[in-house]
Structures are given as C-alpha cells and as structure tokens.
Design a protein around this nucleic acid. Structure first.
Lengths: 346, 346
DNA sequence: CTGTTAGCGCGTTCAA
DNA sequence: TTGAACGCGCTAACAG
C-alpha cells in the first residue's frame, strides 16, 4: 500500500506507464523529449499514447527525484541580502528573463544565512551578492563540494568559483568628480558596519577626489547610516537640514540615493536644481524613476551577470572559473545634470 | 566508478558510514536526531563517532533525496507577483522570522508563471499572493494533487486549500471616510488591467463613500495606472499637477501611496499638510518611512499569515482548509493626519 | 527500429 | 545496531 503522506496523491511515472500500457522507461523517454537522438527510438503512436495518459493524470516529473539521478535541478538560486534594493530587483529581472527560455526556475533566497541553506539545497548555479569575512571559508567549502557559484564581491579571489568584480573605485571617482565640476559643498551618504568609521573603495573615492580638488574633508558632510533605507533617509535629512547644507550629495549605493532624493523632496528641495544627487550601481530602476537617477555603474551589468550564471547552470562546473571585470561609466540623468560654469551652484 | 557530474564530490551518507565504521542507517538516525524518543536507540559513543566523521567530511544530508522518502522538503515557497511592493517585503520578513526556528527555508518565486513551477517543484507549503481567472483551474489541480496551498484572494472559495481573505471593502471605506472628514476634493489612484475602467472593491469603496457624502464623482480626480510604481507616480503627477488639484488622495495599495507621496513631494507639496495621502494594505514599511504612511489594513496580518503557512508546512495537508478573515482597521499616521473642523483643507 | 528489464543514486525506515 | 527494501525518475544494456 505505497502512498505518500497527505491526502492528495501525486501521479508517478509508474501510474502513467500503467495507464498508457507501456514501461516506465518509455514514459521517461517521452517526457524528457530524449527519444531519437542517442537514446532509443519511440514510435509516434506510442508517444501520443503516453502524452495522452500523462495529460489525463496530470502527471509532472518529480524534480527532486530527477535531481538525484541527473544531478540537475533546473533551478538557480539567487541569494540577495537586501531585497528592497533596486539593485536586487534588477538582478532578479535580468535572471528571470534569461532563465525562462531555458526552462530554468530562479528561486530567491532572502535569508542572510545562505551558507546553511546552500549546504543542503542543491541548485544548478547560485548567485551570491555579498560575502562577509566569516562566510569566506564555508564559501570555499561549498565550491569544493561541487556547488556552482557566481559571487559578487570586489575583494575575493576566484577560488573554485566565478567572481563578479565590478571594480567600483575608478567609477566612483567619476561620480564625485561629476559633482565637483559644479559644486564645492559635496556631501556623502555612506553605510557603515557597527560603530566603525566609513571605509571601503566607494568612500575612499570620495575623500581622494575631494583632496585632488583641494577641498578639505568636512566631517559634518558625511552622513553615515546603518545600511537600511530608513537610515539613509534620516542621514540625508540631517545633512540637508543644516544651515550650510551641501549642494550636492554622493551616495555610495543607488538605494541610498533613492532615499536621499525622497528626503530632499521632503525638505522642499528640488533635486537636480537645489541639490544634485548621484548614486552608485546603475540599477535599472534609476532610469525609470522621476527624477531619473544619475549614477555610475558597469555597462550592461545585469544582463551579463545573468548570462554568466545561466551558462554555468547549463554547463555545470565544467568551465574554468573567471574573474569578471566590468568597465564603469557615468550615467548623467536628471538628479544630477551636467553643470556648465554658468550654472554652478557654489 | 559511481560519481556525480561535475568536478567536486559531495559527501554521501555512505561515505560517512564508512568513515565512522557504522551502517548508513545509524548515520541517518544520528543526523536526523531521531534516536531515543520513538526511534531506535544509538549509544552516545556511536553518536559521537558519527558526528565527528560527518564533521570531518563536511557532510550535509541531501534534501532532495530526503524529500523523496519523507515527502517533506523543509521548504516553503512564497509566490509573490510584485517584489517591489512593500507588502511583499512584509510577507517575506514575517515568514522568515517564523520559519527560522523550525529549520524551514523560505524560497521566493518572483515569477508570474508560478503554476508551472509548482507543478514540478515541491514544497511543504506554498503561499500565493494573486490568482488570475485562468490560474484558478490549475490551482485546484495542484491542491488535488497534494500541494499544500495558502492563497491570498478576496474572491476565491476554499477548494482544497486555505484562503486568506482580508475583506478590503469595509476597510477601504474607512480610509475614504477618513479623508472625507477633512476634504471634499478627494482623488483616487488605482491600478487597472489593460484599457478597462477601474473596478474592484477597493475602487467601489471610493465611489460609494463619495456618493454617501453627497459628492459627485469627478473623473478627472481618478488616476488610473498600469500597476507599476512608475505608473502610480505618473498618475499622481497628473492629478496633483492640475489647477484644481485634489487636496487628498486615496491610493488603493500601499505601494501606489508611496509613489504618490514621492510625486507630491516632487511637486513641492508637503504631504500631511498641503495634501493628505492614504494607502491600503498596512505594509510594515509604512510605519518606518517618513512621512509615515496612513493606511487601512488588517491587524497583525503578516504575522498571522506566516503562522498559518508554517503550521500547514509542519502538519502537512492534514488539516481542514479554512477561509481566514481579517478585521480591518484604520492606521492614522503622518501622511493623512486627523483633521478637526478647525484645520479642514476645503 | 522499438520497447523492456534491471539497477542506479539518494536518505529513510522496518524487521531482524 | 544493521541489512535490505523503499520511494522517485533516469538510463545502460538487452530482447524482440
């Protein structure tokens, strides 16, 4: 009396075989579309009988069982730390578009504890958007055990997995320089971990570009926040609420820039006129919003990431891991337009 | 020469058994923590040996293989149509919090074509946030075949699955009446499918509340949009850009309300003073933003949904499906404060 | 050329 | 504490 738990019974390949009066092997060949080429041939009439039986029963191959045998799950996992970030949505959108024609399902993991999950759950490829120092070891362990990984990180070396390294430094300098062309009072909105002072390449681009322009760093113009959108909003309110408020803001991520724009508007300022704001990342949403977001970022980033991920998913871990560099570019849009000498704000 | 595809080899239960010098059965009992209580007893010394061997090899049970035997995947799927909606993020947040202590992993499906995915991929329970008419049939098919479903829908009858029916009608009326207490020029921001005119309970609440207040429906005050955040933004710009602009806006979803607030601020209006804006849904983010979002919605909605989903995931489809009704409530916050007769805007 | 048999690969679980 | 069967779909080798 074999039966799975629960009330409903899911049709198995054996039921279909019985219904069609053939063997399970034949059903398998028909369902996976692998008749002819290489495998044994199945007559058209039999194919039709099997198809009809499967249809009648509403049969769908059990992906879990299939995965055990083939090692393929027809699934990619996207581990995304900050789902509210338009950057994450851009990744999702690009991957979904690329995965659909391949019959691959993207599943999103919004959990910060992705290491544990990936140790038990298999996928044909996994995209990881952030790696803390403590996660580096287990990450390499995953790769060693055969998990196909594509990791977004600016520091990591490829150690059995692909690394997407969109080197932010030079691009971020472009952003700050763009603001410095029309402003002297340039503030910065930057996330920090814990109580530590701001750090990282994106922030260094700010300090060094200021220095290169002969401007002293004003700590009152640095709005550190906790990494949440609400925090970015509050930090911007503090910066722009000052009497000697900055006339331009450099936000080290696009989502911080979006929050900054909202905060500025809340204060009655017109972004792109009273204050210029630029972000970092070139998320797709930046183009669509109003005012559209000036930003720096890699060209064609999301589509290329999606293509790599799916190539890996299809090929398996066969290929040699790469470090993928992306050239960055300045995208001048409404939130921080070009300023000629004539319309400088300072 | 048995070996899985790819270069890395994943440790199996057999390797652990060999390493520890015991049978696979023993390893299984140890790993699933099912020794003692009900299950067979395993001596402490053996447990230690097995644990050490598993640790050395970095063994993790293969969830796919486990699923075949047990019928449980330790996974719940959240099918969410609009990931940028704070409502979706609220669902995710609540489910993640509730799932973590149970060892259950929430996976998010951002694909509109969830039916196909669910037909092949199993989960202990699935949350679905929107059902089109064409999806109703396949939905019932899924339920009949044993998929444990929790469906969010205001119309559907329970047909083998739970229905979360947060009856919006009366609650939405509360929202419109709240605005009508201080305004006569109340606009509406509402998504529409295709070219059809606005419809649905949330919109009817608007027209009937207006009628009850003796106010004629002004079609120029109805901002229909395409369902995207950018569309809601544009619709609001049109409404508030008019000379005789409405002094209050009723948005039929929270994400539309958020876009409306951004648009209003873009126009230099102070929300909660120059214009009042109210949403629908009571997404968690509404409390955190600034100005905080006035809204109507079910009380404690997300946590209760999460609890139900996980109860189903744990119990399997054992229980009798329910229709869950949620009482709605008005949440007065900054974006549409209380207005006494003294500070009416009209 | 067409179809079947038999056994694989997981982790689980019952009878011994 | 274990051997062996079990559940699933896949597939090499075989039979007609």
């Amino acid at each position: 009396m074999a039966r799975t738990a629960g009330s409903g019974i899911r049709p198995t390949i054996r039921m279909v075989a019985a219904e069609a009066g053939v063997s399970t092997a034949t059903v398998s060949y028909v369902m996976s579309g692998r008749r002819g080429e290489g495998g044994p041939g199945v007559s058209d009439i039999t194919v039709e009988r099997v198809r009809a039986a499967a249809e009648r029963l509403g049969y769908r191959p059990n992906q879990a069982a299939r995965a055990i045998r083939t090692g393929r799950t027809n699934t990619v996992i996207l581990s995304l730390t900050m789902l509210s970030d338009p950057w994450s949505l851009s990744v999702i959108e690009a991957v979904q578009k690329a995965a659909a024609p391949l019959g691959i399902t993207p599943l999103i993991l919004g959990d910060a504890d992705w290491v544990k999950v990936l140790q038990s759950h298999d996928a044909d490829a996994v995209f990881v958007d952030a790696v803390t120092p403590e996660q580096r070891k287990p990450l390499e362990g995953l790769a060693a055990r055969g998990t196909t990984l594509v990791v977004f990180d600016e520091q990591l070396e490829a150690a059995g997995f692909d690394v997407i390294r969109s080197v932010a430094g030079p691009g971020c300098t472009l952003a700050v320089e763009h603001l410095l062309a029309g402003h002297r009072k340039v503030g910065c909105v930057v996330p920090v971990r814990g109580e530590r002072p701001p750090a990282g390449r994106r922030y260094e681009a700010y300090t060094s570009a200021l220095a290169a322009a002969g401007i002293d760093l004003n700590e009152d113009y640095v709005g550190a926040f906790d990494g949440t959108t609400a925090g970015a909003y509050a930090a911007t309110m503090r910066l722009l609420g000052r009497d000697d408020r900055p006339t331009a803001l450099y936000a080290t991520t696009d989502y911080a820039a979006v929050s900054a724009i909202n905060a500025a508007q809340r204060l009655g300022l017109t972004v792109g006129r009273d204050v210029d704001i630029i972000g970092v990342g070139n998320a797709i949403e930046g183009e669509r919003m109003s005012p559209s977001l000036s930003t720096v970022g890699p060209v064609d980033f999301f589509d290329r990431v999606a293509r790599l991920l799916l190539k890996r998913a299809v090929d398996g871990g066969t290929q040699v891991p790469e470090v993928l560099d992306f050239p960055w570019q300045l995208f001048v849009r409404e939130s921080a337009p070009h300023r000629s000498a004539a319309n400088r704000l300072y």
